[in-house]
């Protein structure tokens, strides 16, 4: 097992643990808008760590280009979906809980 394998394995395990942390946040947060913040941890940290670990494991060829394409695609589409969710929840008469400033 070479050094690169160890680094990529550590990245993949860290990514899957961050997914569990994000889901824990989804369970703990008090209202819908704060749950969206916890979900964006899954969409960014988990995806970046796992897919970059797989790219590092694979080296540079056609498969890693496909992995990079999946990463870019997820990073473009998930904020769009989160924005659409927040906007339609606001129109659907869900009021965000605001803290004391």
């Amino acid at each position: 097992m070479s050094n690169i394998d160890i680094i990529s394995g550590a990245l993949i395990v860290a990514g899957s643990l961050s997914i569990v942390v994000g889901l824990l946040g989804v369970y703990r947060m008090p209202d819908f808008f704060t749950r969206l913040h916890a979900a964006s941890v899954i969409d960014t940290l988990g995806t970046i760590l796992i897919l970059s670990g797989l790219i590092l494991y694979q080296g540079f060829n056609l498969v890693s280009v496909k992995l990079l394409l999946i990463l870019i695609f997820i990073l473009i589409t998930t904020p769009t979906a989160a924005h659409a969710l927040a906007k339609s929840a606001l129109h659907g008469k869900i009021k965000p809980i605001l803290g004391d400033d």
């Binding site: 889901l23 989804v26 749950r35 969206l36 979900a39 969409d43 997820i74 979906a81 969710l85």
Partner: peptide
């Protein structure tokens, strides 16, 4: 939101 997370 949960279904979206499930898909990702």
């Amino acid at each position: 939101l949960a279904v979206n997370i499930f898909g990702t």
